[in-house]
Design a protein around this nucleic acid. Structure first.
Lengths: 140, 140
DNA sequence: CGATAAATCACCCGTTCGGGTGAAGGTTTT
DNA sequence: AAAACCTTCACCCGAACGGGTGATTTATCG
């Protein structure tokens, strides 16, 4: 962004120089003021479009992939820390057994957590749970 | 977009009119050509930024959340049309039985499709398949 | 300190999933 | 026409999943 601004400034300065240059030489007398203005208008329109795109693109990019956990929703649904952890691993495509190994707990424990999650998320399948969790921004 | 262009044209015409108006009146003689050009440059820069944003926002919006199917990858993995369809429904969190009902085929058929999908996507669970498909932009 | 919530584990039961094989009918390509 | 591919369906079996109940041990909060 800084570079864009700098470039824009340089372009402006260059234009002023060019104008000054041609103004005190030969061309200026032969051309009408309208032509002059038209050229400047066109140039700055293009420059404006370009600058505008440069300046707004990055905003959009960072707004896109950024993930902020929706703790409000998390609390509203009464999802505990551990359950949220299980939810995350579930979203990675891990099986209950794999989640159990990951968390150093038994398969039954994971099953309990998943069951509770399904209740709280009001779904009946893990794929739906993942889908819903993403939609509620409980997971990236 | 069309409206933007029209508005832009109108703005241009209006500016020309204003210029013409002030040119043949009182102000023009008192102001330097540089001031004139500066004002025009500023105006058209702003106009350019605005127009650029208007014209590109839709593109960006559609480029961001909009989904373009990665047909190259789809073909590379040899995923058929029907399989891709099943993949989509799978990503919605539907069970095999539900997919079968959706497509008016038997559960076994769906199972065959999912099995082939798992082979082609090199995964072993449907959650992983969905994850991978999203990452490869085979589904939204 | 007692109540409450969280985390842990277990068992049962029925359903769903995944993996493998086979096969029939249709379309496309060669 | 033959080969290749897609789609469809079937059956089997073991693993994973979902649903329910019950119990113990830690926090944590009032």
């Amino acid at each position: 962004m800084t570079r864009t601004i700098i470039f824009y400034g340089v372009a402006l300065a260059a234009l002023v120089l060019v104008l000054k240059f041609i103004e005190y030489r030969f061309i200026v007398r032969d051309l009408s003021i309208e032509f002059y203005l038209g050229a400047v208008a066109l140039f700055f329109t293009v420059l404006g479009v370009w600058a505008g795109r440069k300046l707004t693109r990055k905003k959009i990019v960072t707004v896109g992939p950024a993930f902020v956990l929706n703790e409000v929703e998390l609390q509203r649904l009464g999802i505990s820390k551990r359950e949220h952890e299980v939810l995350g691993l579930m979203a990675e495509g891990l099986s209950n057994q794999e989640i159990a190994d990951h968390l150093f707990v038994s398969l039954n424990t994971v099953k309990t957590h998943t069951s509770n999650l399904f209740l709280k998320l009001e779904v009946s399948r893990r794929t739906q749970a993942v889908q819903r969790a993403k939609q509620l921004r409980l997971i990236p």
